[in-house]
């Protein structure tokens, strides 16, 4: 999709960990990130620390929410906060140069709290997955 990611999420260097929103399909969306040395989660061994994967899932969900907001006329990307992470599993830490494709599924929303689930893949391998609740301010 040809919308600049900066229009969809408020995070910037060095903590911006989504490159683009690739597709939106109903309640699902896919985001992409190629790991480069310019993000603050890369450890000394060239691999991403696990909290970086949680942040990547959160920002992917934020990009999806941002896309919906922009589609309905918003000019600024909404500011979202993680309320809860539940059932996060990290299968391995991805390395510099790997490209992550992350599928976000939007669940129900009650009182401004939205449940999302995210699965991060690199090629055929599942890197990490979690459920998460996000407050959108």
């Amino acid at each position: 999709m040809d919308i600049a990611i900066e229009k969809l999420i408020p995070q910037r260097y060095p903590i911006k960990v989504v490159d683009s929103l690739v597709e939106v399909n109903g309640e699902d969306a896919v985001c992409q990130l190629t790991l480069r040395a310019d993000n603050c989660f890369i450890e000394g061994d060239g691999k991403m620390a696990e909290p970086g994967l949680i942040e990547h899932i959160a920002q992917s969900a934020s990009a999806f929410a941002g896309y919906r907001a922009v589609s309905s006329g918003a000019t600024e990307p909404p500011l979202g906060y993680i309320g809860e992470v539940k059932g996060f599993q990290c299968h391995y830490r991805p390395s510099l140069g790997e490209t992550l494709l992350t599928t976000i599924s939007m669940g129900p929303e009650i009182d401004g709290i939205t449940l999302i689930s995210g699965v991060v893949k690199s090629g055929d391998k599942v890197v990490a997955e979690t459920r998460m609740k996000i407050y959108v301010a």
């Binding site: 929303e109 009650i110 009182d111 449940l115 609740k133």
Partner: peptide, 10 residues
């Protein structure tokens, strides 16, 4: 609470 209520709904 408000967070776990969303789990119930889901």
């Amino acid at each position: 609470d408000s967070l776990s209520l969303v789990d119930l709904i889901a």
